[in-house]
């Protein structure tokens, strides 16, 4: 399945605003560091399915880390 929310880890400063904003509580800080020494925000592959693409995390992100993808409706 395609990712609904993706994080540009190198831009992330681990500020956690997205974590607070996410109504589903699926965002966490990864264990690893990015090159600036921050734990970047992440969503596990399993949790991606819970994302409703509500955009709240992306709206609150001060560093334009987050991109959101919405599944396209299949034409009938």
């Amino acid at each position: 399945m395609d990712k609904k929310v993706s994080f540009d880890e190198e831009r992330c400063k681990g500020c956690e605003l997205c974590i607070e904003a996410c109504p589903k509580g699926i965002i966490h800080l990864a264990d690893h560091f990015n090159s600036k020494g921050f734990h970047p925000a992440a969503v596990t592959d399993e949790e991606q399915a819970k994302c409703t693409t509500c955009l709240l995390c992306a709206r609150m992100c001060p560093d334009t880390v987050i991109e959101i993808f919405r599944p396209e409706r299949v034409a009938r």
Binding site: D2, K4, E10, R11, K13, G14, C15, E16, L17, F38, T53, L55, A58, R59, M60, C61, P62, D63, T64, I66, E67, I68, F69, R70, P71, E72
Partner: peptide, 28 residues
Amino acid sequence: MSVKVFERPKALSSVIFHYCPGCTHGII
């Protein structure tokens, strides 16, 4: 297939902000 519904605006450069973590300057 999916479509991108949120991305960095084109009027922003790719330079990473120098602002502190969580500073809302970035949002503005």
